[in-house]
C-alpha cells in the first residue's frame, strides 16, 4: 500500500480546490460599525484611566504633605496664639453674633 501516492494525491486535490472568497453582504459596514464602537469604548477607557491616574497622584501628594507636616517641628514662635488673643477672638465672635439684629432664632 503506497501512502506516499495517497499523500501526493490529497495534496494535489487540496491545491486544485480554489479558495472560496465570498464576502457576506455589507461586511465592511459591519466591520466599520464594530471599529467605531471599540474606539468609543477606548475613549471612555482612556478617560477613566486618566481619572484613576489623577486620583493616585492626589493620594500620593496628600500622603507626602501629611508626612512632611508630621516630620516638621512646629516652630515655638507661631505654635500657639497667646491666651489674650484667643480670648479676644472668642469675645469678638460671641458679641458679634449677640449684637446682630439680622439673626432670627
Amino acid at each position: 500500500m503506497n501512502l506516499d501516492n495517497l499523500h501526493n494525491k490529497l495534496i494535489t486535490a487540496a491545491r486544485a480546490t480554489p479558495a472560496d472568497d465570498r464576502v457576506p453582504y455589507a461586511f465592511e459596514k459591519r466591520v466599520m460599525a464594530r471599529l467605531a464602537e471599540t474606539v468609543r469604548v477606548d475613549l471612555l477607557g482612556a478617560w477613566s484611566a486618566a481619572l484613576w491616574r489623577g486620583a493616585v497622584a492626589c493620594l500620593v501628594v496628600t500622603m507626602l504633605s501629611g508626612a512632611w507636616l508630621l516630620r516638621t517641628e512646629p516652630s515655638s514662635e507661631h505654635a500657639e496664639f497667646t491666651p489674650d488673643f484667643n480670648a479676644a477672638v472668642f469675645n469678638a465672635g460671641v458679641f458679634a453674633s449677640a449684637g446682630s439684629t439680622d439673626e432670627v432664632w
Binding site: D21, F27, E28
Partner: peptide, 11 residues
C-alpha cells in the same frame, strides 16, 4: 476592508 476582505475570507 472592502478591497482585502475576499482574500481574508479565503484564508
Amino acid at each position: 476592508v472592502a478591497k482585502y476582505s475576499p482574500r481574508l475570507f479565503a484564508t
